Simulated assay, not measured.
Amino acid sequence: MNILIVADPLELFKIYKDTTFSMMREAQRRGHKLAACVPQDLAWQRGRPVTAKVREIVLTGEKDAWFRVETLREVPLHEYDAVLMRKDPPFDAEYIYATHLLEQAEREGARVVNKPRSLRDHPEKLAIMEFAEHTTPTLVTRDAQAVRAFHAEHQDIILKPLDGMGGMGIFRVKADALNLGSIIETLNKDGAETIMVQRFVPDIVKGDKRVLVIDGKPVPYSLARIPQGTEVRGNLAAGGLGVAQPLTPEDLKIAEAIGPVLAKRGLLLVGLDVIGGSLTEINVTSPTCFQEITEQTGFDVPAMFIDALEKLVASGK
């Protein structure tokens, strides 16, 4: 296969843990060819297909100079067997514009993973609304009074922005309501921005588990991201400790209920965030944790993903 990866600049990758890098390494090991670009490299002009200025690369196996650029050229996206959209959040206007360009490339014959329309249709915080039976009590609102009423009912809550990543902007407010007003003002900017509020799940001390689902099938291990010290956030970017562990019956039930539904919508790779048996987020932009799970358990997550990608390409869908 010829594979194009649309991602953040390669120079910024932390290859010791980066999931996209692990995909690329497994693809090259199987003899597939790699190219990479950033969303800024995508372009469309009337009368021409969507193109990208790409770097065709080879992974060197070295720690620092880990890739070598073979050629630089402008290529129509439909010439690739697969285009992997692996740009990290934020899920901002530029991200959305990139999905529109990628969707146009699909109309021209490109195969894009994950499917651009489904990326837009499943914002990571709000996608849980469709699967409410698996979630903790949750409120999505701009209304400060609604947030106060939710706190009065549940006493211990988590507040977070809809466009955050890596644990950014997450606050916990306990029964004493300390700083609740200030936190609401900070997050929803006097009603200008919608926020999410969830009942605090005490099982966060056991970890915010990332459950990976590939082509509708769960990886048999999750990565429990365990908060450290006085931190309430388990996100690895916020200093959480990642511990791989077998899926629990509750994890498996959630993954088996949601995974096949999303796979039918062209979401080949999904990351479910589960705390204490409750679904808290559905990650579809660039789910991570491949390397941590593989290194700790021996289960080859990148191989499972490339197997699924090869199957998709071979199917001609």
Rank of each mutant, 00 (worst) to 15 (best):
E56I: 01
L42M: 03
P89N: 02
V38I: 13
L59R: 03
K253H: 15
G266K: 09
I57M: 01
E310H: 03
L126S: 12
F305G: 01
T194N: 01
V38W: 00
A192P: 01
D215V: 04
A152V: 03
Q28N: 11
A93K: 02
S315V: 06
D64K: 10
H154G: 06
L187D: 02
R46G: 13
P9S: 13
Q296I: 10
E74G: 05
S182R: 09
Q28W: 11
A244L: 09
R225K: 15
A93E: 14
A36P: 02
K63F: 14
L77P: 10
T288W: 12
D203L: 08
P39D: 06
Q245I: 08
L178T: 09
V113I: 15
V58W: 02
N283D: 13
M165G: 07
D64H: 08
Q40A: 15
R48N: 13
G277C: 07
F305A: 15
L269E: 05
R29I: 07
F67M: 09
L309I: 13
E70M: 14
P161I: 04
L267A: 02
A308G: 03
L262H: 06
V75S: 03
D81M: 00
G61S: 10
R111L: 15
N179Q: 12
L77R: 04
V243D: 04
R25A: 15
K125S: 07
S182G: 13
V69C: 07
E124R: 00
P89V: 06
V243Y: 06
L312E: 11
V213P: 02
G109E: 08
A308R: 03
V270Q: 00
D143N: 14
E124Q: 05
G240M: 03
V197Y: 03
A43N: 13
S22R: 04
L162I: 12
K53T: 12
R30W: 10
G61P: 08
S222F: 12
G259C: 05
E250C: 04
I226L: 05
P39N: 02
R233S: 09
H78V: 11
G216P: 01
I15G: 06
G276I: 05
K253L: 11
G298L: 08
K317L: 11
I183R: 03
E153T: 14
G167E: 08
R199W: 01
A308I: 04
S118R: 08
I275P: 00
I157S: 08
R30K: 05
L72D: 06
K206F: 14
P287R: 01
T20K: 00
K14H: 14
A127R: 10
L279Q: 10
Q28H: 10
M196V: 05
E250P: 01
E11Y: 10
R68M: 14
G242C: 05
I226W: 04
V270A: 07
N114V: 00
L269Q: 00
F67Q: 07
V261W: 09
T285F: 05
D215C: 01
T297Q: 01
